[in-house]
Design a protein around this nucleic acid. Sequence first.
DNA 1: AAGCGTATTGCAATCGATTGCAATATAGCC
DNA 2: GGCTATATTGCAATCGATTGCAATACGCTT
Lengths: 343, 343
Amino acid sequence: MTIKPAKTMTLSDIARLAGVSESTASRALRDNPVINAQTRQKVQQIAADHQFKVNATARSLRTQKSHTIAVIILFDAKTQQAITDPFLLDILGVIADELTRQGYDMLLSTSKTTDKDWRSYYFDSKRADGLIVIGQGEHDERVEQLSDAGVPFVVWGAATGTERFPVIGSDNRQGAQLAVTHLLAQGCKRIAFLGDIRHTEIEMRYLGYQDALQAAGIKPEAKLQLNTDFTAQAGYLQTQQALFNELATLDGIFAASDAIAMGAMKALLEHNIKVPQQLALVGFDDIAMSAYCTPSLTTVKQDTHAGGKLLVAQLLSRINGGKAASQLLPVKLIERQSSLRKH
Amino acid sequence: MTIKPAKTMTLSDIARLAGVSESTASRALRDNPVINAQTRQKVQQIAADHQFKVNATARSLRTQKSHTIAVIILFDAKTQQAITDPFLLDILGVIADELTRQGYDMLLSTSKTTDKDWRSYYFDSKRADGLIVIGQGEHDERVEQLSDAGVPFVVWGAATGTERFPVIGSDNRQGAQLAVTHLLAQGCKRIAFLGDIRHTEIEMRYLGYQDALQAAGIKPEAKLQLNTDFTAQAGYLQTQQALFNELATLDGIFAASDAIAMGAMKALLEHNIKVPQQLALVGFDDIAMSAYCTPSLTTVKQDTHAGGKLLVAQLLSRINGGKAASQLLPVKLIERQSSLRKH
DNA sequence: AAGCGTATTGCAATCGATTGCAATATAGCC
DNA sequence: GGCTATATTGCAATCGATTGCAATACGCTT
C-alpha cells in the first residue's frame, strides 16, 4: 500500500505535474495568498499525492536560515564521561520539545568530542542559527568568546550579573540558603558542603550555604567544603572519606546535586549513621529518583520546565533581532525524610 | 584580540584573496593532491587567517549528503512525558560521541512532538542521511513503514528475528532468565514481574522470566505479571497495590527496569518488608544509581557502550551501501544487596 | 474605446560549494 | 625542434528552492 517513490521528487517535478512554473509551485506550497486559491489547492494536492517534501538543505541555502539550534552540553574536562547527570536529561527533554514546537530542529553535541570550536563549527558553517550552552562549567573561555563573535546564544548556568551574555538558571544561592536554613532549623550544627565550587553554579550554592550559616551566627569552616564531582560515586567516596577524617562530628550534609546526595546517603547508611536522626541530608535538583530512595531525599527543586522554555524563548527572540536577557528562576525546597526530624 | 569578521566569508572570497579560482580554492581546502602543494598551503593559510568555514548547507546541497543522523526517541503514547528513563541518557550519550567521532552530526527528536512522519521529515527532506530509532515501543507501525521506504535506519530494541529491519539490542530474554534463576537460587518461590509486556523488549524479559520458572518446575501465574510503566512512581504504586492484594505471599520481584525496581523498593520498605530477607528484588539496566540505593540493587547490566557503537557502525555501513544486521548483545547479572541472602 | 488598477503567473538571478572536462603550461624524449 | 605525457588550474554546470521584478490577462471606469 505504501507508495515507494522511485526517486525523490523535487519542486520542479511537482511544478511540471501541476502545469505551473517552479515559482508558482513554491508559492503555492507555502500557501502564499498571491497565488490563486485553486492553483494552490491543486499544487498542494499533487505534492501530497507524491509525498513531496521540500529539500531542507536547498531551502536553508536560499533563505540563509537553518531553522536548527545546536545544544551543547559541557563537561568537566576531567570526568571525561558521557552525559551522566539525570538533571541534564530533564532539561534536555524540555528544550527538545520546545524547539520542536517552535519549528526548530535540535542538533545535540557533547563538548567532549566537539571541543574544537563550536562557534565555527555550528554557527559560521551555518549548521545552526543559534546555540544553547548547558553548564558553564569551570569558567569556559569558549563561552566568553561566543559573546564577542555576535553569535546568538544563551547559557543555562549561573547568572552572576557580570556576564556579557544571557544566562538562564536557577537561583542557586537562594536555593542553597533555603536548604541550609532548613537543616539548621532541624537542629544541625555542623554541616558539610559537597560540591565542586569551581563550577559557577556550585559556587553560588556554596555562597548560599555560607549565607545561611552566617545568618545563624555560625562561622563557615573551609574544611567542610569538599570538592565532589557530579556523580553518586563521588558523593559516596567523599562521604566515606569525610567520616574517616575528623569530620565525624558532622550532623548535616548539603550536597550540590541529588546524585551526590544519594552517594552520600549510601555511605552514611553503610556506617550505620541514622538519616536524618544522626545526620540530616539535603540535595539539589529534585530528580525523579529523589522521592524513591529510602529515606526519601529532601532537595531543592529546579524548575526545568520553565528553564527550558525560557532558554528557547530568549534565544529565538535574539535570533529574530530582539534582545535576550538573563533570568534567575525561583527554586523550591522539597522536604522529605532525609532531613525531617520533627513532624 | 578576537578577529571579528565583518561578514561571513565565502569560498569565493578566499579564492579571490588567494588569487586562484573557486575550484582551485575548493580543492585546496580539501587537500586534493591534484593541486600544487604550495597553492594548497597558501589557500589553507588564508582560510585559517580569516576563520573561513565551509558553508555546510551549500556543501550538503551539492554533495547530496547531510552528514547528519537523526536519533528518534519513542515514547509511550500514554506517558506523554519527556525523556525520563536514565537508561536512555546513557545510550544517547554513547551514540552522540560515536557519531561525532565518525564526523556526523546528531539531530535529536522526541517522538512526542514529531509524531507526524519522521521518514518524510528527516529523510525525504534530506535533513538526515539515516535514522536511529530508540525503543520500538508498542509495535510502532511507523517503524515498519520505514523499512518499506528504503530509508537507512537501525533500531535499538528487541530483535525477535522476524523484523525486516536491523535491530540492535540486549539479549533481554537471557538477561531476565539470569535474573529470575538467581532469585530462585536465593530461595524465592513466588516472584512477581513488573513491566509492561506490550513493549517488545519487556515482552522478551517476560519470556525469560517464564523460562526460568519453568526450568525450575514452577508454573508461571499470569496474575503475577503486573503492567508497569518505566518510572519509579509506577513501580511504587504497582507494588503497593500488589501488597494490598492477595499477592502478600510474594517473596521475589523482578522489575523490568531499575527505575521501576527503585519504586518497588520504596514501597516494600515502607511496608517494613525486609529486602532481601523477606522479599528479594532484581532490576534491569544497571543505571548509575543502582549501586547507590540501599539496599543496593541487583540488576542485569546492558552494555550500552557496545550498543551505541554498534548502532552507529551498522547504520553507517548501511548508508555506505553495505548491509546492516541485527545483533543481540550479551548481558550480565550484577549481584548486589537487594537479592543476596547468603554470603 | 482608451486607460488604468488588480490578480495571477513566470523569468531569471541567487544562495555557496563541488566537480567533470577542457585548457594551459611545463617537462621530457627522440 | 617537434611531439607527447603530466601537472595545474579554470570554466561552467549543478544541487533545489526562493523571490524581486516583469509580464500578462482581465475587468472596470469614464
